[in-house]
Amino acid sequence: MLSIGEFSKICEVSTKTLRYYDEIGLINPDEINPENGYRYYSIRQLKKMLFINRLKSYHFSLEEIKAILELEEDESEEKLCSALNLKRREIQKKLNAFEYTLKQMSNDILNLEKGIPIMSYLYDIEVQLVETQPMNILYIRRMMSSDDYAAGYGKYFNRIYKKIATEKLTLLGTPMTIYHSSEYNPAGNDTEFAIPIEEPVKGTRDLPGGLCAKSVLKGSYPELTSVYTKLREWIENEGYELVKSPYEVYVTDPNQVTVPEELITEVYFPVKKK
């Protein structure tokens, strides 16, 4: 048996952390002396602790690790493989985002060295006035916090696609998001996830057509704030005003692109002349 100190030293995990792991049921000491409360771990638990550390290094949360440890033996390898593949995709997306940021920073540095203002890229964002056609959309409307968005997009669009497939509905366009809140609130924003279809079934509504200021983003989603800024500036300068909620149309599937530059998003601001 190993004392908690010896176990801590071998695995390079503090005794405070080991006590916390015991509290949440991640890894419990094999033996606790009833007289003095000293904790002891068995040699075989070293392997388990190394496994926990390995999953932590792969950015699994403690909750995710605990769920993996609780898997039945006959399903553990298959589900572990699935979990690792999913986590690898998550990390790859983050790497792509960092690479995109580094490229953006490098371009900004080059421009500044040439005397070009850092925000001059806004001049390259084009805005056009278009007339959109009415659409029948299958939708889900929810209050979404800023923390919910990443998972929410996949969750609700997948639910809509499942209904389309189950009921054999006719797809007429790509996914879109309509933002109904009048201001940004990290705690919750009125968000509508929708996909245009042909059939007017339960769960659909009409999205009216009309005059829109439109811009297209080719790049990472965080850049959408720049597009929104340009659109609002254009609307003000051209004597228009916003009349309905703005919406985004996702021309490309983020799961099918390899680099952020391949993402194409159309942004529409319904407007009228003042």
Rank of each mutant, 00 (worst) to 15 (best):
G5W: 11
G5P: 03
S8C: 10
E12A: 12
S14F: 12
T15G: 01
T17E: 01
T17A: 04
L18W: 03
Y21Q: 10
D22H: 14
I27V: 14
N28V: 15
I32V: 15
P34K: 11
N36K: 06
G37C: 02
G37P: 14
R39C: 07
Y40C: 08
K47S: 14
I52G: 09
H59S: 08
S61T: 11
L69E: 11
L71A: 08
E73R: 00
D74E: 15
S76H: 11
E78V: 15
K79V: 13
A83E: 07
L86N: 07
K87Y: 01
L95C: 14
L102S: 11
M105V: 15
I109V: 15
L110V: 14
N111D: 15
L112A: 06
P117H: 06
I118N: 05
I118M: 13
M119E: 15
L122T: 10
Y123D: 13
E126A: 00
V130Y: 02
V130W: 05
T132C: 05
Y139D: 03
I140L: 13
S145Q: 04
K155G: 02
Y156Q: 01
Y161E: 13
K162V: 01
E167K: 14
K168H: 14
T170N: 01
G173A: 02
T174Q: 13
M176K: 02
T177S: 09
T177G: 13
E183D: 09
G188M: 01
T191S: 06
P196M: 03
E198V: 10
E199I: 09
R205N: 10
G209L: 05
G210Y: 13
L211P: 04
K214Q: 08
V216S: 01
Y221G: 07
T225M: 14
S226N: 09
I235E: 06
I235D: 03
V243W: 00
S245I: 03
V257T: 08
P260S: 05
L263Q: 00
V267F: 05
V267K: 06
Y268I: 00
